[in-house]
C-alpha cells in the first residue's frame, strides 16, 4: 500500500512534538474526518529555524507531516509558502490515490503556521497560496487536482 519512504517517515517520524513559545502555530484538518495536523514554528531572520508537528491520522497523514518538516526547515517564509501538498507527496515517492485528498494536508498546516506568524507580526498577507481551504467541510467525493498514476 505505502512505499518504503512513506513507511520510513511513518515509523521514524522527524521533528515530532511541539515547540515552546512558537512564533507561528498552524492547525488544519478535523478529527471528524480522521486527520488533524498541528505545526509549530520558530522563525529567525525570515527563515524557518525550527519546526515540529503533532498529527492525529493515518500512515499517510503522519508521513506527510514528517516529510514537510524536512522540506521547509531552513527555507525562507516565501519559499516555504511555495511548497505544496503535491510536492510533499512527490517527495515521498507518491501516495496511494485515495490518500492524496484526505491525508495530504501537511503543506497547508505549514502555510497556516506562517500566516499565524504574519498575523502576530501585524503583517497583511495575500490569500492566494497561503491559507488552507476549510478541511472540516470539504466533500470527500470532490477530487483533488493532484495526479497519481
Amino acid at each position: 500500500m505505502y512505499n518504503d519512504k512513506v513507511m520510513d517517515h511513518f515509523f521514524n517520524p522527524r521533528n515530532v512534538g511541539e515547540l515552546e513559545n512558537p512564533d507561528g502555530v498552524g492547525q488544519v484538518g478535523n478529527p471528524v474526518c480522521g486527520d488533524t495536523m498541528r505545526i509549530t514554528l520558530k522563525i529567525k531572520d525570515n527563515r524557518i529555524e525550527d519546526i515540529k508537528f503533532r498529527t492525529f491520522g493515518c500512515g499517510a497523514a503522519i508521513a506527510t507531516s514528517s516529510m514537510v518538516t524536512e522540506l521547509v526547515k531552513g527555507l525562507t517564509l516565501e519559499e516555504a509558502l511555495e511548497v505544496s501538498n503535491k510536492q510533499v507527496a512527490e517527495s515521498l515517492g507518491g501516495l496511494p490515490p485515495q490518500k492524496l485528498h484526505c491525508s495530504n494536508l501537511a503543506a497547508e498546516a505549514v502555510h497556516a503556521a506562517i500566516q499565524d506568524y504574519y498575523k502576530k507580526q501585524g503583517l497583511v498577507v495575500s490569500d492566494d497560496n497561503g491559507s488552507s481551504h476549510d478541511h472540516s467541510t470539504h466533500d470527500h467525493s470532490v477530487d483533488d487536482e493532484s495526479s497519481e498514476e
Binding site: F10, F11, G34, D35, F56, C58, G59, A60, A61, C102
Partner: peptide, 26 residues
C-alpha cells in the same frame, strides 16, 4: 481514543499482528 486505526494497524502489522479497523482510512 485520540488515535486513528490505520496508524495502529500498520504498527501491529510490523510486529506480526493482523487486525482490522472501522476507520475511514481503512
Amino acid at each position: 481514543k485520540y488515535l486513528e486505526g490505520e496508524s495502529i494497524l500498520l504498527n501491529l502489522d510490523r510486529m506480526g499482528v493482523a487486525a482490522s479497523s472501522g476507520s475511514a482510512c481503512t
